[in-house]
Structure formats: structure tokens, C-alpha cells
Design a protein around this nucleic acid. Structure first.
Lengths: 191, 191
DNA sequence: ATTAATATATGATAAAGATCATATTTAACA
DNA sequence: TGTTAAATATGATCTTTATCATATATTAAT
């Protein structure tokens, strides 16, 4: 029995992480299996011991993000709903989120293969629901926001980051993010 | 001197229209030159008499949309700023926009090749600026909205339509669009 | 009708890339 | 230390596709 028991799992996780970063940066068709595996210091042959296809990988990568994301991690009980929301907005509407790695799939993959692949679409929808529900539940504790307002809020922040990604001028990005941060804060009771 | 003078221009326009619809539906890599030309009742050979590459076509298609879009057409002088804005929002946040052909590139192409191709990005940025400026100029006539609020508004409606595109359930789409329509109306002075 | 420029079609090329078949390496365990 | 199942690497295949080169078709003007 070769390799430690966790070895394959670790490799799989590494592939998922790399894949996620590459997909969000370059889109489904902008990433090759070869490139992906090299970014993991492996070769393409190993890929199919972990995933049956590139398309499967894509949705698995979204799921993996969902299970290990900042969103999930941002639920510490010691934070009030208000604090939690402020932190979420600050992070989401930050230049680091726009420029950094492992961003939110909702903003980075909105018009990627998601619109063509059912499984990817389901994974995406799941993240979207999760985000709305999380925000909603924390809102209820101190706001009068109804679910409709939350839908508008998430549409705004997702849209903002998606648009920001298309911009070359960092100052424009900051302006956009700040504008949305302000609006979001007002809507959520001035946070 | 074969063909009428306008013939080539018409063919070029037909290609641009088809390309736009196909690109917004399937993304840059989801469209082949072959498929595109067949949708114009032509064959791939004719393509390169009109465009030097598929990538060039992409940005040209966005420019073409910008010069012939509803946004451009929605500026009739007989409408008040308020009426114009209401009409824009109604159209943008409609199920027809989400499901129909020739939609807004801002929402449909946000995370497509735009993030990888400079020329496409420039074309995209142009449409984005145009939209913001148009709304802003019409707002000024009767609202106290500043430019920052417009940035937040367009982020919301673009985000909403982009997200709507990923959804299978029409009822969810309608809910999202309605929620954003309501928020937008409030922000713009109750329209 | 003939011509000639232009548009379109057809056939070919060549590269990229996903996936598979097969060989090689790895390391836990006897 | 040798075995062996599991993981990884290598080589090959086969499809897809953009693009080019060449042939054909079109039609305004003669």
C-alpha cells in the first residue's frame, strides 16, 4: 500500500485550489489541463486519477471553494450580525478581493461556462443562495431588510466586483468599490 | 466592379449581429468561426475578407452593439429624464432582456474574454462609461443622485442580469429583477 | 455577352488540447 | 530488503478549430 493514506486527498485538494485560481483568472477555456497540473508540479497524466474530466473539475472547484471559503470562515460566533456584515462588505468590496487569488466565484465566473454547463450552474446557484441566506440571517438580527433588499444588495456587490475585474485603472476600481460599499452600508442601517 | 457598393457592408453587419448574439449566448470560446458564418448562411472562407481574426471580431461586435443599441436608441428627446430612466430600468431588468437576443454586453460578457483581451476590455469599458454617463446626465435633470450613486446603481442592474443568466428557474429570475427594479426606482426618486 | 474586380466557397494546414494506454515511480508493509 | 498497490509520468491518438491558399461565383460596367 503505497503513499500515505492522505496523500491522494492532498493532491486532489491541491489540484482543486490551483484549478479554482486559474479558472477564476482565465475562465474555463482559458485553462488547460496541462497548465493546471504543471502549476501543481505534476503532469497531465495524473489528472485523470483524480477527476473524470475538466468539466467535472470546474464544478468541484466551485464546491471546494464554497466549503473552505472566507464566507464560510466568516461566521465566527463572537461577531454580532452587524460586525459580520461590515466585515463581509469590507472584504468583498476590497481591491484585494478584485486583484487577489481565490476570489468569489459569483463575481468572477458569472458569465463563464456556468451558462453552458448544468453542473457548474448548480454549483454556482448553491453559492449564490448561500450568500444571500447568510446575509439575510445576519440582517434579521438588527435590520428591517427584507429578502428582496438582500437580493438587490448582493446583485450590487457581485456586479461591482465583476465590473471591477474588467478595469485597468485602479483608481476607477477603488471609486466603484467605495461607492458600492457606501450604498451597502446605508442599506444595512449605516454600517 | 462586382456586387453593389453596400453589399460587403451589409454582410459585415450581418456577421457582427450574428457574432454578437452568439458571443453573448456562448462566450468567446463557445463560438466557432464556422458556426458563426453558417448562421449568416455563409461559409468560413468569407470571414477573413471582413475581419482579420476572431478576436478582432469580438471587440468589433461590442462596438457595433454600442452604436446601434437600445441604449443609444433610448435617447428620444421627447422623453423627460425621468421617463427615460424608467424605461431604461424596465427594459434592462426585464425577463426579455435576460432571455432574449442582443442583450447588454456589460451583463452578458463581464467575465468572458474581456478579462484577457485588451481590445475587448477597451470596448467593454467604453460601453460601461457610456451607460453611466447617460444615466447620470438624465438623473441630473431631476434627482440629487451623485455620480457615486450611479456607479452603485449600474453595478446592481448589471449584476442582477448577469446573475439572472445563470438561473434555471424563471420565478427566481423575476424575483431578482423585480427586487432590483424596486431598489433602483427608490434610489432615483421613486420611479 | 464579356470583363474584371470583388465576394464567397472549398480544400489544406497546422496547432492546441482533452483524453487514453502504457510505462514508471513511490513508499507502506511483509 | 523486496513486493505491490497506488500514484504519477510519458507517449500516442483523435478531435476541434483558427487560419490560409486557391478555386469559383457574382455582378456592375462596358
Amino acid at each position: 500500500m503505497p503513499y500515505t493514506k492522505e496523500h491522494k486527498q492532498q493532491t486532489r485538494d491541491k489540484i482543486l485550489r490551483s484549478a479554482y485560481d486559474l479558472f477564476t483568472a482565465n475562465g474555463f477555456d482559458g485553462v488547460t489541463v496541462n497548465q493546471l497540473m504543471h502549476s501543481c508540479k505534476l503532469t497531465r497524466g495524473a489528472f485523470y486519477a483524480h477527476f473524470s474530466s475538466k468539466a467535472e473539475l470546474y464544478s468541484e472547484a466551485i464546491k471546494y471553494w464554497a466549503s473552505s471559503s472566507k464566507l464560510a470562515g466568516l461566521k465566527p460566533d463572537q461577531l454580532s450580525g452587524q460586525q459580520w456584515l461590515a466585515k463581509l462588505l469590507d472584504g468583498y468590496l476590497s481591491i484585494e478581493h478584485v486583484n487577489g487569488t481565490t476570489p468569489c466565484p459569483l463575481a468572477f465566473l458569472a458569465t463563464d461556462i456556468v451558462t453552458r454547463d448544468v453542473t457548474a450552474r448548480l454549483a454556482y446557484a448553491n453559492v449564490y443562495q448561500g450568500m444571500n441566506q447568510a446575509i439575510m440571517s445576519f440582517c434579521n438580527s438588527y435590520t428591517k431588510c427584507d429578502s428582496k433588499q438582500i437580493l438587490a444588495l448582493t446583485a450590487m456587490i457581485i456586479g461591482a466586483v465583476a465590473i471591477a475585474r474588467t478595469m485597468d485603472d485602479e483608481q476607477s476600481i477603488v471609486s466603484l468599490l467605495e461607492a458600492c460599499r457606501k450604498e451597502a452600508g446605508l442599506k444595512l442601517g449605516g454600517i
